[in-house]
Simulated assay, not measured.
Amino acid sequence: MDMTAGKIHTTEIESEVCGEKFEIQYYLPKNFSDLYKYNVIITFDSQDFFKYGQIERQYQKLREKEEMDRAIIVGVPYPDVEWRNHYFSPNGEHHENMVTFVGRELIKWIDANFKTLRMADSRVLMGESLAGTFAFSVALQYPTTFPNAVAFSPFVDDDFIERFKNQPNLMQLNLYHTIGLEEDDFKTIMGEQADFLTPNRKLNAFLDLEPLEYEYRELEGGHIWKTWKPELERVLKHYLA
């Protein structure tokens, strides 16, 4: 494995539960050293977090100012839009297996290959749109492994809200949830008209009354990285300051 610091690397992991290989990206910060243990940020739609969110630059800037703890960034990219619907969507045919892959196999691989803190609170899941829904799915399924999850403008429907209602251990979670005020009527990446604002407000109305750590923000803007990118610094500080 390439352990060059300050670079984004790509590798592959064989998943037994899914019966296939997945591409994985990882970023080791500048001055990365085996002398220290690291927090782990896991992003879904990782190529977009690197390209449009520039998450590694935002991390590096905060780290240099000593405004956040040491972390590595590991990500699961999507090969194409159709794939996201099958794997990241809560209604996708491979969704449950993909959640299990992250909750059991991916974290095992991360802890085996990098010097990590290995505590639930030292891990943060992040995603936007369907990948944000997926981040919440993993936290719901594995609250003692991944209590910290961020979803920018997640896809939400009534069935997904039921998943929260059926999780007896919500109090273990620390969620960060945003939605854009212009997301009441927009065109998705699949070319369909959608309203994300209303169902996200419905999820918020439920979570607001539950005993968990929960930050909810309605942002100026739409279903785009221009809206999400400025939130990344806040999120990194929120969990890892």
Score class of each variant (00 low, 15 high):
L170V: 10
D185T: 09
L175T: 03
Y142W: 02
L181H: 05
F160M: 13
G180R: 04
L140Y: 04
H177N: 07
K165M: 13
Y142M: 01
D185C: 13
V156I: 15
K187N: 09
D184G: 14
F134Y: 12
F155Y: 15
L140K: 05
E162A: 14
F155E: 12
I161M: 10
L170S: 00
S153Q: 02
S153Y: 05
A135Y: 03
P154E: 08
S129E: 11
F164I: 00
A131I: 15
S153C: 09
R163A: 14
Q167W: 10
M171R: 12
L175C: 02
G180P: 10
G180W: 03
Q172H: 07
A131C: 15
I161P: 13
L175P: 02
P147L: 00
F136Y: 12
L140R: 02
H177T: 01
E128H: 10
A151P: 09
L170R: 03
A139I: 03
L140P: 05
F134E: 08
F186D: 04
E183V: 06
G180A: 04
S129K: 07
F164P: 08
F160L: 11
D184F: 13
A149R: 00
L140G: 09
Y142C: 02
F160K: 08
L140D: 01
D158V: 09
G132Y: 09
F152H: 10
L175V: 06
P147K: 03
D158Q: 15
P147H: 00
F136S: 01
F155V: 15
L173G: 01
F152Q: 08
L181C: 06
A135Q: 00
F155C: 12
A149T: 00
F146E: 01
E162Y: 11
A149C: 07
T145R: 01
A135F: 00
V156N: 05
V138S: 06
V138G: 07
Y176L: 01
H177C: 00
L170K: 02
A131Q: 13
V138Q: 08
F146R: 01
P154I: 06
T178G: 08
K165E: 14
G132W: 09
S137I: 10
A149P: 05
I161W: 02
M171V: 11
F152I: 06
A135R: 05
P147R: 02
T133K: 05
Q167A: 11
L140E: 06
K187M: 12
E162M: 13
S137C: 07
A131R: 10
Q167Y: 05
Y142N: 04
N148Q: 05
N166Y: 10
N169M: 07
A149I: 01
T145Q: 01
F134D: 10
V150I: 11
P147C: 04
T133W: 07
